[in-house]
Amino acid sequence: MLKETHQAEIDDILSRYPVKRSALLPLLYLAQRAQGYVTEPAMQEIAGILKLTPPQVYETATFYTMLNLKPVGKFHIQVCKSLMCALVGSDTLIAWIDTKLGIRPGATTADKLFTLSAVECLAACGTAPMMQINDDYYERLTEDKLDRILADLRQTGASSLKTGPFMWPEPSGAKS
C-alpha cells in the first residue's frame, strides 16, 4: 500500500494543489515508481486518497502514454521515430536494437531486462537519433555508442553516456 510506504511524499504532493484531483498524475507516477507499473490496487487506493471513483482514475491513467498499466522490462528503451529523428537514422537505430537484443518495438527480452518502444517526438531533434531509457536521454547515437550503453546497463545498471543538462551546439571557446 502506498499510504504505508510513502505517506510523507503523498502529503507533500497534496499540499501543492488547492483541488485534490490535480495530485492524480503525481500519485500515479509515485505508484509506478514504487511497483514498476501502475497496478489496479494502486489505482483504487489513489481513488480513495483523492475521493475519486476508480473509473475517474482509470480514465486519466489510460490517456497518458508514460503510465504503464502492464509490467515493462527493467530498462525501458524508447526510441524516437518521428520525422526529425527518422531523417537521420532512427529506423536504423531500431534495427540495431533488434539485432542486438532480438526485440521489435512493443516487445520485452526473455530475461525481462529490456523493453523496446518506438515513440513520438521526445524534443531532442537537434541531437538525433536519440532514445530515452527509463529517466535518461541518450543522444547522437551511433552503433558503437549503443553497444557501450547496453553493456553498461547490463553490468552496472547505469551508463555515463547519458546526456544533459542539455545544450546544443556546445559553446565554442571563441564565443563571447
Binding site: S22, L25, Y29, L50, E59, T60, Y64, T65, L67, E120
Partner: peptide, 22 residues
C-alpha cells in the same frame, strides 16, 4: 507539475485539464 506523455497537453486548455488531473 509533470505531464505524462501527451502532445495535446501543450494546447493551453488541454494543459489545464491535465493539470486538474483529467
Amino acid at each position: 507539475h509533470r505531464g505524462a506523455g501527451a502532445y495535446i497537453c501543450g494546447e493551453e486548455t488541454a494543459l489545464l485539464e491535465s493539470l486538474e488531473g483529467k
